[in-house]
Every structure is written in structure tokens, then in C-alpha cells.
Design a protein around this nucleic acid. Structure first.
Length: 393
DNA sequence: CCATGTTTAGTCATAA
DNA sequence: TTATGACTAAACATGG
């Protein structure tokens, strides 16, 4: 039935991280890490990394003594003010950042300049819609977002999505409905309005390897669904034209018809459980924190190797930083390990929340693989992506 | 009416 | 080569 497809090759846009040809140098605009200039995350950053503790300093600078923390912060806040600007602002960002923190050699600046030449403010970010939605939810105040809030987060974070809104917003809605990792949470009576909140399924909070939003470990599938729920219907078979008589149990009424067996009001057991957990949020959060704490304490991925050769846990590092700054320590503000943690450290090098500057930094440090990948493997196996490997800082 | 939500289906790229 | 994941379009339902 390919003749019935309304699609044209010109309209179809693959995930840009797959395609070097479509992506090219533009990939350099975006950090391999989540956007950091969104108000929610800005708050997270501000809450967690005011100044580098001694251990953090040694991690970032090795034996080299940096300028003092206030200088770095000053540079960072300057950068925040020119956030979302394009190549013009990048120049000053780089200068400020490198003045205070980086080994400022001419080769590095040349690489940054070359990179800057190829800068494109409207490049498609290398994140899937699932990644974007997850970011929006995880960075929201209550780990829940309305559809409109998700839209807003994406547009705030990525200029690319300020255009063609109808197309990608349709995809966002489809992703929310189609993927088990997202669950609807009804509005409470004191918060009337249209649409539900969307949250991550309780078992889907760690979908991305080491917190890296470029790669999902595995498609999240809810295993506890009732037999008649949508998982039991092999969507993939239908999508790829392998029809059988069983499929008609859900598609007998034709394209676009909602299945009576999986209507919005027919929530499966675990979804209802999640709703209850959300309603009893304080207890739920407490339990989650306890569980995660016990996991983190044993998780080898938490480890970072310092330039000095010693090993330290990101969580421990963060705790030390919080104590250093006389701030409350919340191990769950960030995931327990990098690249969030690495991101927070990079922030202190004076790049502020400017993703372009961050990328320029990466490009200058790892010009051979940082932003001109020959395949998706270059992304996925990039050393900067994983806390399990030695940090390039 | 329109935003939100569900579902089907085609296509492409990548992983296995 | 096949299976899977992601993106896109579209029809249709629902509810404020």
C-alpha cells in the first residue's frame, strides 16, 4: 500500500544524529548533553554547583591552579546573558571561558574558530522526541509536565523547534501516547485545566545510558500490562505490514479509530499505581530516594578518575561541592552520574549555559571525533559521553 | 472550536 | 537480511 503514503522524501526528516550528510557540521551547535539554559535546569545548576570544591578543582584543572571561583562564576553569568545568541556571541563566550579556565593555545582557538564558522543556530538537535520529552519531564519542578509545558520546554531549549510546530508537536503527542515510558497523571481538583500531566513511568526513569540523552538503553516496555492492553498487540507487525487476524481485534474499525480496549479511561494497573504514588508524592519520593541511594552507593558508573589518578564518585564529589558551598545536598537533583555531573563541572569553566560554547569546548578538546561523526557509533562511543571512561576534562 | 490524546500506517536508518 | 526504533502524517475521539 505504499502508493497510499502521503509522504514525500523531501518532508521526511530522519533523526539527524544518524545522518552525517543532513547533519554535517551543524551538529556542533548542540551539546551532547541536555540543554542547560532552561529555567528549570538553570535552577538545578545554581542549586548544585556554586563554586568548585577543592576536589572538583583538581578534577577540572589537574595540578594547574585556576583563577578563583568568583572569577569563573562571573564569566559564567556573563555567558548566561548572551545565551541563545549565535556565532557573534560565541566569540566573547569563548574568550571569557578560556581566559579563566582553559589552556589557551593557538591551536585550540583555531579549532574553535573553524567550528564557529560552521555554526548554525537552527540545526536539528541530535535528540529523539522521547529524549526531549524526558528532559522536559525530568527538569520540571514536580517531574510532571503538561503537553503545553513540554512544547514550551522544547521551543525554549532548541530554536530549531520554533518552526514547523504542527509537525513536531504531532510527533510529540504520538510519542507520549505510543510509548509506555510516559504515563498520564490526572490533574488534581485544585489544578483544573485542560489535559493531563505527563510523567515518566516509575520503571523508566533510567532509560538513557548514564544519563546520556542520545541513546536509549532499550525501548521501555511495560511488562505488567494486562493481556489485552496495547503491548499484546504487536504494533511492530502491523507497522511493517505483517497482518494477521488477531490484529483486527484492535483495528477492525479502521485507521485512526481508537481501540475500545485501550481508551484513555482504561488505565492499566501499574498506571493507576503511579497515579496513587504521585498523589502520595512525599512518601513516594522518599521511597524512591532511598532506593536510588542504595543503588548509587553500589554503582560503579558513578566513578570518575581524576587527573591525579585517584578515583572519586560523582555523588561524593557533588556532596563535597555542596558542603563546600554550604548548600543542602540533594543526590537526586542530578542523576547520580555523568554526563550531568560532567556538565556541571564544565559549566564552571566559564561557558555558562551556552550549548554552543560547550560544544566549541568539546570540539577544541577532541576535534577528531567530537562533532563530525562518520557514524552514529562515533556519538555513542565518544569518550565524553560516558562516565565509565576517563573524563576528558 | 481547538488543544489534547489515541491509533494506524508508511518510511528510513541502525542494530542484531 | 531481518528486527527494531524513530519520525512523520493523518484520521478520529474527547473534553474544556
Amino acid at each position: 500500500m505504499s502508493s497510499s503514503s502521503p509522504k514525500t522524501s523531501g518532508n521526511y526528516q530522519t533523526n539527524c544524529c544518524y545522518q552525517q550528510s543532513a547533519y554535517g557540521n551543524n551538529v556542533g551547535q548542540y551539546s551532547l548533553l541536555p540543554p542547560t539554559h532552561h529555567p528549570h535546569q538553570q535552577q538545578l545548576v545554581n542549586n548544585n554547583a556554586q563554586a568548585l570544591s577543592p576536589t572538583s578543582l583538581s578534577m577540572v584543572y589537574g595540578n594547574q591552579q585556576p583563577t578563583n571561583a568568583s572569577t569563573m562564576l562571573q564569566a559564567r553569568y556573563q555567558n548566561e546573558q548572551i545565551n541563545e545568541k549565535t556565532s557573534n556571541s560565541l566569540t566573547s563566550t569563548l574568550v571569557n571561558g578560556q581566559q579563566t579556565s582553559m589552556q589557551n593555545n593557538s591551536a585550540t582557538l583555531t579549532a574553535a574558530t573553524n567550528y564557529r564558522r560552521n555554526f548554525n543556530a537552527c540545526a536539528k538537535p541530535p535528540y529523539s522526541y522521547i529524549s526531549l520529552i524526558t528532559m522536559a519531564i525530568q527538569l520540571s519542578a514536580n517531574r510532571m509536565s503538561t503537553l503545553a509545558e513540554i512544547y514550551q520546554f522544547i521551543m525554549d531549549s532548541f530554536p530549531y523547534y520554533r518552526q514547523n510546530q504542527q509537525r513536531w508537536q504531532n510527533s510529540i503527542r504520538h510519542s507520549l501516547s505510543f510509548n509506555d515510558c510516559f504515563v498520564k497523571v490526572p490533574r488534581s481538583p485544585d489544578r483544573p485545566g485542560k489535559g493531563s500531566y505527563w510523567a515518566l513511568h516509575q520503571e523508566a526513569t533510567n532509560m538513557f545510558e548514564n544519563g546520556c540523552y542520545l541513546r536509549r538503553q532499550k525501548r521501555f516496555k511495560c511488562t505488567k500490562r494486562l493481556q489485552h492492553d496495547r503491548d499484546s498487540n504487536n504494533n511492530n507487525s502491523r507497522r511493517h505490514g505483517i497482518n494477521n487476524s488477531l490484529d483486527k481485534s484492535t483495528t477492525s474499525t479502521g485507521s485512526g479509530q481508537r481501540s475500545p480496549l485501550s481508551s484513555a479511561s482504561d488505565k492499566s494497573c501499574d498506571e493507576q499505581l503511579l497515579v496513587l504514588q504521585q498523589q502520595q508524592r512525599p512518601n513516594y519520593m522518599q521511597q524512591q530516594q532511598q532506593q536510588q541511594s542504595s543503588l548509587e552507593s553500589l554503582d560503579s558508573r558513578d566513578l570518575q578518575v581524576l587527573p591525579t589518578g585517584t578515583t572519586i564518585g560523582i555523588k561524593q564529589l557533588k556532596q563535597e561541592q555542596c558542603e563546600f558551598n554550604q548548600m543542602p545536598f540533594d543526590p537526586h537533583t542530578f542523576p547520580g552520574y555523568s554526563p550531568f555531573a560532567i556538565n556541571s563541572l564544565i559549566m564552571h569553566q566559564g561557558f555558562g549555559d551556552n550549548p554552543a560554547a560547550l560544544n566549541a569546548y568539546y570540539a577544541s578538546q577532541l576535534p577528531q571525533t567530537a562533532f563530525v561523526p562518520s557514524s552514529s557509533s562515533d556519538y555513542y562511543h565518544h569518550p565524553a559521553m560516558y562516565a565509565t571512561q576517563q573524563s576528558t576534562l
